[in-house]
Design a binder for these strands. Structure first.
Length: 318
DNA sequence: ATGTGTCCGCAGTTCGAGGC
DNA sequence: GCCTCGAACTGCGGACACAT
């Protein structure tokens, strides 16, 4: 590859011609040894690829687990022995007997949309410059304040649209997978403004915990309902109306229990994310090991005849 | 070797209908 | 007439393919 780097041309489309390929210098061991190296690499690289595939499967399972933890906790609670009752809502099934089912509108004080003026392409430069949120700020598991655009100096900011801790943001328009994404603002952002594509919900905090409702909105059942309710002819930008949010059924435990559930979910999420990070690191290491093994085998740094006799392969330091 | 076109996913902006 | 909200249109960037 190093020999080809200087020969590969093209600015937008990188291409290698036949000539540099034909002129590539390489070491050529006897034919029998070439076959031995190829066989050795087939076996060893295959093992590494299988290990990497297992790690990929593990990551997929952990992500499923993360979703299942949220969905189970916000509909069944933390006590596996709690008596259950029928929720009366088909997609919600059974809930603990001491929980209520209410419409989200019954715990919402205000729901509002923001303002999307023509902004700069770059984010606000520091917390003192005014910025307008982009819808992508609620994608993923956390609110991302850096997803904003700087408000031009000639536009007057609307301070009533700035963010406060406890604001629950929901995207009202996006692709089917992302529309309805919810995130909780954890601290005040005096100079960040709500955009037109986001709903902001403020709750009766004596009845409903914003953390609990945010997690509920991320559960697989709610995602399913939102994807069904999303409307619009353009598949790249589906919409949900306020009524979809406000009329949605919400299983509501006592306030203290909502807090316990939210804390428990966040702790589980951290543990699962740590495992996902470990698996991703393992995949990176395996990929590095794969490249190093191929390089060492084809340059004679590994004696594949000896390696064939041993299951463990040691490479000479480069 | 380089420039240009196309497709796709994602997101920003604008427009129009309806309610007040 | 203004505001809200839903829908459609538009733009951007990355990846790739094709043309010159």
């Amino acid at each position: 590859m190093a020999q080809w780097e200087s020969s590969i041309g093209g600015a937008t489309f990188r291409a290698l011609n036949l000539e540099p390929l034909a002129n590539t210098l390489g070491c050529l061991p006897p034919f029998a040894e070439q076959e031995a190296i190829a066989g050795f690499l087939d076996r060893e690289v295959g093992k590494i690829d299988r290990l990497a595939a297992e790690q990929e499967r593990l990551i997929a399972l952990l992500k499923e687990k993360r979703q299942a933890v949220i969905s189970h906790a916000v509909t069944k609670g933390l006590n596996p022995n709690a008596p259950l009752k029928d929720s009366g809502i088909e997609w919600l099934c059974q809930i603990p007997a001491h929980w209520e089912v209410v419409r989200i509108k019954h715990v919402v004080v205000t729901i509002e949309q923001g303002w999307s003026p023509q902004c700069d392409a770059t984010p606000a430069d520091g917390p003192e410059q005014w910025g307008v949120l982009k819808v992508g700020c609620v994608n993923g598991d956390r609110f991302n304040a850096s997803e904003n655009k700087a408000l031009p100096d000639d536009l007057e900011p609307l301070p009533e649209l700035s963010l406060r801790a406890g604001d629950l943001l929901i995207s009202r328009a996006n692709t089917r997978e992302l529309v309805g994404s919810a995130a909780l603002v954890e601290q005040d952002h005096d100079h960040l403004l709500l955009c037109d594509k986001l709903y902001r919900l403020r709750l009766q905090t004596s009845v409903a915990s914003p953390e609990f409702l945010t997690l509920f909105l991320r559960s697989s059942m709610v995602r399913g309902q939102i994807e069904i309710a999303a409307s619009g002819a353009s598949s790249s930008m589906l919409n949900i109306g306020q009524s979809v949010i406000l009329e949605m059924a919400l299983p509501l435990p006592p306030l203290g229990e909502q807090g316990e559930i939210a804390t428990w979910i966040l702790k589980c999420r951290e543990q699962i994310e740590a495992l996902i990070n470990d698996a991703q690191s393992a995949i990176t290491l395996l990929q590095e090991r794969r490249a190093a093994l191929i390089s060492a085998a084809v340059t004679g740094k590994i004696d594949v005849r000896a390696a064939a006799a041993n299951t463990t392969v040691e490479m000479e330091p480069a």
